[in-house]
Each structure stands twice: as C-alpha cells, then as structure tokens.
Design a binder for these strands. Structure first.
Lengths: 222, 222
DNA sequence: GTTTAGCATAACATAGCGTTAACCCATTCG
DNA sequence: CGAATGGGTTAACGCTATGTTATGCTAAAC
C-alpha cells in the first residue's frame, strides 16, 4: 500500500485519528478533512488514490461532494468509498448514483476496510495496465504519459483531455461532450480544444488523435 | 442494462428464481448454475459481464471457483460479486484475495445490488451497439464502417446517408425520404444525393447500394 | 430512337479545423 | 518585490476536406 495517497473525510476527530493511525501503519500517505468544502479543495490539489467520505458532513452533504468530485476527470482513477452510520437502502443507492465505488456502514472494521481498498486498488492497477493502448500508457499519479518507454510530463489540461479521449479509444467524442467533461461548464471557445489537440499531436504524433470533421475527435486505439 | 449477460450461481433454487426475475426485469440476459462445476463451465462458454457467486456451494467452494475463473484471461472484463450468508471478516477477506470485485452479505437488497452492478459496469469497458449486415458493421460511436475486418472512417454526411440506408436493408428509400431524413429541411438538389451515393460505392463497392430508377436507393442486405 | 433519370467528373463554396502569436493569469524565482 | 516562467485561452487568419452544384455523358425504359 506504499505510495498511495488517501483522503479521509469525517467531521468526528476521533474517527479521523483512528483511521489515520491505521492507514499510516500500512504506509499510506494520509490527509484529512472535516468539511465538504475542505474535502473538495484537498481532493483537487492532492488527487488522492482513495477517498473515504462520510455521508454526514457539517456543510455539504457527502453525496453531493462525491457528485462534484466525480465530474472532474482528474479524479477519474480515484476510488471513492462512502462511510455512513445509516444502514438504510436509501443512502446506499444514492451513493452509487453519485459515483461511489463502495459503501461501508459504521462501525468500521479496519481489516475489512483495508482489504476492500486493496482489492479496489489492485483492480485499478490491472485496469491501467490493460489500458496501455497503442504503446501509450497513462499514469494519472504522475500526470505523465509513457510512450514507447519514454515518459512525458504534460500540463494538466492536456492531460485531462488526453485521459478523456483515451478513456474510450476509437470512440469519437463530440466537441460538446469534450467541453462539458473536460472543461465543465466554463464558457470556452471552440479553438481552445483545437489548440490542446494540436499540442498533444505535437508531443505524441499526428496520428494519435484523429479529427472527424463536423463531429469531434477520436483517440486511435491502433 | 440491456445486452448484459449475467450468471447467477447459488444452490438454493428460490434465491435463483428471485434474482433471475428481478434482473430480467432490467432487461439482462440471465443464466443460472447451482454447482461450482456448472458455474465454471457456463462462465467459460458464456463469458458473462457479471457473475454473482454464492460462497457456499455443494461441490466446489465459491472462493475456489472465483480463483479458477480469475486465472482465465477470457474473463478479465467480467465482474465477480460474492454472495454470502456469513458476514464474518474471514470470508470477505478471502473473497477479495480470490479476485472478487465486490462482496454482498445476505439478505440481499435487490435495489442496492442493482446499483452496485451498474456502478461497476459503468466503470468497466464500453460495450458496442452495432448492427452487422452483409459483412458490414456500422459503428456510430466511431463514425466508422467495418467491412471485411477493415475499418473506414468516412465523412459525416456519407456516414449519415449510409446509416440511414442501412437502417432498413433492402428497403428502397425514396429520394424525398432521404432528403428529409438525412438533410432535414435544407434546400438541396437531387444531384447531391447521387454524388454521395457515388462516393459510398467508390469506397465499399458498386454493389452495396442499388439504384431503383425513378424511385430511390436500396442498401443490399444480401 | 427518343426520352429521361442517373452517373461521373470537375468546379465551386464554405464550415470547420489548424496554426500562429499574443495575451492573461498564476506561480515561481532571483 | 518585480521579473520570469509556464500554462490556459483567445483572436486572427489561412487552409482544406467536405458538401454542393454544374455540366456533359451514359444507360435504361418505352
């Protein structure tokens, strides 16, 4: 579990301490937040591998936090696990709708939780390995792309765009899709996308991204 | 949840029936097995998207079944979820070690289970929804046509026209139909259609679209 | 043989994209 | 602190694939 960044979000300090202690024993890099707002800020700057998110928070609802985070492609590979004192169907269902990867009801059994996280992380790793397309591998931890054994560290937006396109190789993403997924609801001109595509092509070869005129762009899976 | 193949494995017929009923309501393609051996055989021939696997089985232990299945790369993209009456730490941990994606303790709440599966499937591969006629597959995600294993990326209008004609193979579409469906209410001359048909024939062979003089065009479904 | 719809080719128009350079804004650095 | 750097965005402008039209030709229908 080395090298993994973990974000704990809970309003109760005791639980934070308990969990932090246990995860640090496992060698994880643990950060904590007590409010939804802090959680979002930290998550976006830290880009953790795992977020443990309490549903009950003083300001923003944990489920809402999750929805907000899930919208940001930077956190595509982040595992989000809900914690809740409530065991009702209702909140479990809402949790999955919000894009959670798992759901755990308090009281927490540390060992179970650890193994759950390990399983999810392992799965993600495998996933990344399989997601080596066209000699290109994407490493969201480092904001870098490996192509033909050479590592390139690329700027955030380029990385986000490339990740997005690579998330479904060969699919043509429409410009509107790209705008809303990569840029959120900012008011951005069309040329901005082109420029970023251009930079990516400059770095990795003209052929990796193909234009479909009048529609959008497509990352070539071969 | 259409088109997904689900394999249910449990030794109790009542549970199988209950689950089968509920998943079929969701439009899933449900298959069942009552023993570990059957489960393995079925899984390998069916290659389901999801396997729900009871831990307690009359012959082979569910965990062992999972380990065996996980070794086979054909099932790399298959999600395996354990079901168990026992809630103990022990078997949960063993389950994740064996390569399970999730673990659910009975009694099962159908809604929770459904959302769990949906969340896992969403994170998994995209599935393709293409029709295949006459060795030609049209893939609207990719804006491309596969013919005899070769992919052609074609311009938007050509793609739209071809899709339209292929939507009902062997039907003769009248020119007015084509105009209104493919071009909307633009004021377009008749010759435009011809030219696009010509380009399609150039790319995929003269025979794929047949002219019916005085009426319109027909995509040959053979 | 005459008529007509459709074909082929080339010419044309333009939406949509590519490219460049300049700008703003943060962050870092001297 | 101002300067320098790097990323993100924009505006201007050129370019080209794509879509459309024009024109003369061919083949089918009667």
């Amino acid at each position: 579990m080395q090298e993994y960044r973990l974000l704990l979000v809970d309003d109760e300090k005791d639980i934070l301490k308990l969990l932090q202690y246990n995860f640090e024993l496992e060698g994880m890099n643990v950060h904590t937040a007590q409010t939804g707002k802090d959680a979002i800020d930290l998550a976006l700057s830290l880009i953790p591998n795992v977020i443990l998110l309490d549903v009950m928070l003083p300001d923003i609802d944990g489920i809402e936090v999750c929805e907000i985070l899930r919208k940001n492609p930077v956190l595509n590979n982040t595992i989000i696990i809900f914690l809740s004192a409530r065991g009702e169907d209702y909140s479990q269902v809402a949790g999955y709708r919000a894009g959670a990867d798992d759901y755990i009801v308090k009281p927490i059994r540390i060992k179970v939780l650890l193994h759950k996280i390990k399983a999810l992380l392992d799965r993600n790793r495998d996933y990344n390995d399989f997601e080596s397309i066209n000699n290109m591998q994407i490493d969201s931890d480092r904001f870098s792309i490996m192509k033909d054994g050479k590592e390139s560290i690329i700027p955030k937006k380029e990385f986000e765009l490339l990740s997005y396109l690579m998330s479904s190789p060969d699919k043509v993403f429409r410009r509107e899709e790209i705008l809303s997924e990569v840029w959120g609801d900012a008011f951005i001109g069309d040329r901005t996308i082109d420029v970023h595509v251009r930079k990516l092509r400059e770095k990795f070869g003209r052929e990796i991204i193909r234009t479909v005129k009048g529609v959008g762009y497509r990352f070539m899976g071969n």
